[in-house]
């Protein structure tokens, strides 16, 4: 199975999240993820990216790195924001619950220019 990395840089606005979801699904299907797993990943990316950009977006961009391996996919994201707002990740209890249910690992942290995240979704052959 092909391994490698795909990178995507997007304006930090909610209307661009569709592209991040599509990219996640596209990369996941390369590694043979099932529809259930693809759907989970899509929900996770959407949730975590939305937590970064918020309903009205932020000034700047978010960069996403999709790293695919034989049986799992790692997605790392970082905001490059220039609006002087907090670089701390803001995630509601419900979002945390959602993320915990759909991916195997999810870490959020404050980065230099904005919040960062790293999530891992494993493919489970059945």
């Amino acid at each position: 199975m092909a391994t490698g990395e795909v990178r995507l840089e997007l304006p930090a606005a909610p209307e661009f999240l569709r592209i991040s979801r599509l990219m996640a699904a596209g990369v996941a299907s390369r590694v043979g993820f099932t529809l259930d797993e693809v759907e989970d990943l899509r929900i996770a990316i959407d949730e975590v990216c939305f937590s970064m950009v918020g309903p009205r977006g932020r000034a700047g961009t978010i960069t996403l790195r999709y790293r695919l391996d034989a049986d799992h996919l790692v997605v790392e994201g970082a905001g490059q924001f220039s609006d002087g707002l907090s670089n701390e990740p803001v995630v509601s209890a419900l979002s945390n619950q959602i993320l915990a249910a759909v991916v195997d690992e999810c870490e959020l942290s404050a980065g230099e220019e904005g919040p960062r995240f790293r999530l891992v979704k494993r493919h489970r052959p059945s």
């Binding site: 599509l22 529809l35 899509r42």
Partner: peptide, 24 residues
């Protein structure tokens, strides 16, 4: 089990990209 995107595409006789777009 849950099918892969490739399996869905094959069964529906469309490309994987079309499947991804349709799910989205």
């Amino acid at each position: 089990r849950s099918p892969t995107i490739g399996e869905i595409a094959k069964s529906a006789a469309v490309s994987e990209e079309e499947v991804l777009e349709a799910i989205e």
